[in-house]
Computed example of a mutant assay.
Amino acid sequence: MGSPASTAVAAVVVVLLCGASARAQDMDKEWARPPYRGFFGAPGSMLPQSDVDLLEFPLNLEYLETEFFCWSALGYGLDAIDANLTGGGPPSIGGQSASLTPFVRDVATQFCYQEVGHLRAIKQTVRGFPRPLLDISAANFGKIIEQALNATLDPPFNPYENSVNFLIASYIIPYVGLTGYVGANPKLLTPQARKLLAGLLGVESAQDAVIRTLLYERGMTRLASYGVGVAEVTAHISDLRNALGRRGVKDEGLVVAPGQGPEGVTVGNVIAGDHLSLAYDRTPEEILGIVYGTGNPTQHGGFFPQGADGRIARGFLV
Results as ranks from 00 to 15, higher is better:
G75W: 12
D51F: 06
L64A: 09
G88C: 07
C70T: 10
L47I: 04
D79I: 10
S50H: 04
D82F: 10
S92A: 14
S72H: 05
A32Q: 11
P34D: 02
F40Q: 11
L61K: 01
Q49G: 07
P90I: 04
Y63E: 06
L74S: 10
G44L: 07
P35A: 02
L64C: 07
L85D: 02
K29M: 13
F39N: 09
L55C: 07
D28V: 14
G77W: 07
A83S: 11
E56D: 11
M27A: 15
E30C: 09
N60D: 07
L59Y: 03
E62L: 13
S45Q: 15
S92L: 00
R33C: 08
D53P: 03
G88R: 10
G88V: 08
T86I: 11
F57S: 08
L85I: 03
A80R: 15
D51N: 07
L74P: 13
R37D: 08
D26L: 12
G44M: 06
L54C: 01
A80Q: 14
A80C: 12
E62W: 06
E65V: 01
D79N: 13
A83N: 09
N60C: 03
W71Y: 14
G38S: 03
G77D: 08
G89I: 06
I81T: 11
G41Y: 04
L85M: 05
A42N: 01
L78A: 04
D82A: 14
T66A: 11
E67L: 02
L54E: 01
F68R: 04
N84D: 15
A80P: 09
N84R: 15
E62Y: 07
F68E: 00
E67I: 00
P34Q: 02
S45T: 14
L47D: 02
L55M: 13
D79V: 12
D79A: 14
Y36F: 15
P48S: 02
R33I: 13
F39P: 02
G75I: 13
C70N: 07
E30T: 14
E56S: 13
D79M: 12
P58K: 13
A42G: 01
R33G: 07
D82W: 10
A80H: 14
N84H: 15
L59Q: 03
Y76E: 06
F68A: 01
E65T: 02
Y63T: 04
V52R: 03
G77S: 10
Y36R: 14
E65I: 00
Y76D: 03
P91N: 05
A32W: 06
G41H: 05
Y36D: 10
F39H: 11
E30L: 14
F40T: 08
L74W: 12
C70W: 09
P43R: 06
D51L: 07
N84V: 11
P90D: 03
R33P: 03
G44C: 06
G87Q: 14
Y36P: 03
L55E: 08
Q49R: 09
G88Y: 08
W71G: 03
N84K: 15
C70S: 11
S72N: 04
W71N: 10
S45D: 12
S72W: 05
P91W: 05
R33E: 13
L47W: 02
Y63M: 05
P43N: 04
F39E: 13
A32C: 10
G87N: 13
E62C: 01
E56N: 11
E30N: 15
D26Y: 08
L74K: 15
Y36E: 13
E30F: 15
L74Q: 13
P90Q: 02
D26I: 09
S72Y: 05
L55H: 08
R33H: 12
C70G: 10
